[in-house]
Amino acid sequence: MKILGKLFGSDSRVKILRLFLFNPDGVFENAEVASRARVYSSTARREIALLSRVGLIKRKYFYREVVRKSPSRFVAKRKRVAGWTLNEKFYYLGALQSFLLGATPLRENDVAKRLERVGRLKLVIIAGAFLQDFNSRVDLLIVGDSIKKLVLENAIKNIEAELGKELRYAVFSTSDFEYRLNVYDKLIRDVLDYPHQKVVNRLNLSKT
């Protein structure tokens, strides 16, 4: 990410660029951009203004359900809000997508380091978005014990912010994973039988 940050001006800009490029049909309010990219609100507003000026993103209005409390009950109402979406007519869109989506900001060791505090990890496999295989059922498979749920969720959000995409991930205890492996569980086979990389492999799982 540091190299891309230098090329594009800042790490924050790269995160926000990837958010829009990875989610071409998405519409995001300023606050959601800041939350998903894990940057300050002021930074998100500044980068959104810049990307809007150059024409990469455009304003789009959409309806969001808002729940409000009345004296006796909760009432759901649809509210028209302004957001931002990718401008599919941006002249350099194809070149930018090819470069940024192909330049994975996290290396194998980076992923392992982000997850090292979540518990006693036995196996971590990256696939899907990490390898530009967007048809994969799972982007990240984690096997371990004493997994700390909140620490894991925070680590996943940090990884998602750098990738610009919500991750599809699965977490198993060691015993559960070994059972599923032995009975040829479909999800496990869908990960192991297709492109993937093992970034932690304390189970000494073979390449097949």
Score class of each variant (00 low, 15 high):
Arg137Pro: 12
Met1Thr: 15
Gly94Tyr: 03
Ala129Lys: 13
Phe8Gln: 07
Thr85Gly: 08
Leu101Pro: 00
Ile147Glu: 03
Ser175Cys: 05
Leu203Arg: 06
Phe22Cys: 13
Lys207Pro: 06
Arg107Pro: 00
Asp190Pro: 00
Asn30Thr: 12
Gln97Lys: 14
Glu65Thr: 11
Arg73Ala: 10
Asp11Asn: 15
Arg80Asn: 08
Ala37Glu: 03
Ser206Gln: 11
Asp133Lys: 13
Leu51Lys: 08
Leu192Gln: 06
Arg78Ile: 10
Leu121Gly: 04
Val66Lys: 15
Ala44Asn: 02
Ala34Ile: 04
Ser72Met: 14
Leu150Asp: 15
Arg38Cys: 08
Leu181Gly: 01
Asp25Asn: 11
Gln97Cys: 11
Lys60Tyr: 06
Val124Gly: 03
Arg120Ala: 12
Arg38Ile: 10
Ile48Pro: 01
Thr104Cys: 13
Lys149Ala: 10
Glu166Ser: 14
Gly83Ile: 09
Leu181Thr: 04
Arg202Glu: 15
Asp139Asn: 01
Glu32Tyr: 01
Asp139Pro: 00
Leu152Lys: 04
Gly144Met: 07
Glu116Val: 12
Arg45Ala: 09
Lys122Thr: 08
Ser173Val: 04
Val138Ser: 02
Val66His: 15
Ile125Asn: 03
Asn182Trp: 13
Lys186Leu: 12
Lys89Met: 11
Leu163Ile: 13
Leu51Ala: 09
Leu141Tyr: 02
Ala127Phe: 05
Ile125His: 04
Asp193Ala: 15
Asp25Thr: 09
Lys60Gln: 12
Val14Ser: 02
Ile188Pro: 00
Ser98Pro: 00
Lys89Trp: 06
Asp139Trp: 04
Lys207Met: 15
Leu101Asp: 04
Leu115Ala: 08
Val67Thr: 14
Pro105Gln: 07
Val54Gly: 04
Ile126Gly: 02
Arg117Gln: 15
Ser146Leu: 14
Thr43Asp: 04
Lys149Thr: 11
Ile126His: 01
Ala44Arg: 03
Asn135Phe: 14
Ala155His: 02
Leu205Val: 06
Arg107Asp: 13
Ala76Leu: 13
Ala103Asn: 10
Leu19Val: 03
Ala112Glu: 06
Ile142Ser: 07
Asn135Met: 11
Ala49Arg: 15
Asn87Trp: 02
Thr174Ile: 09
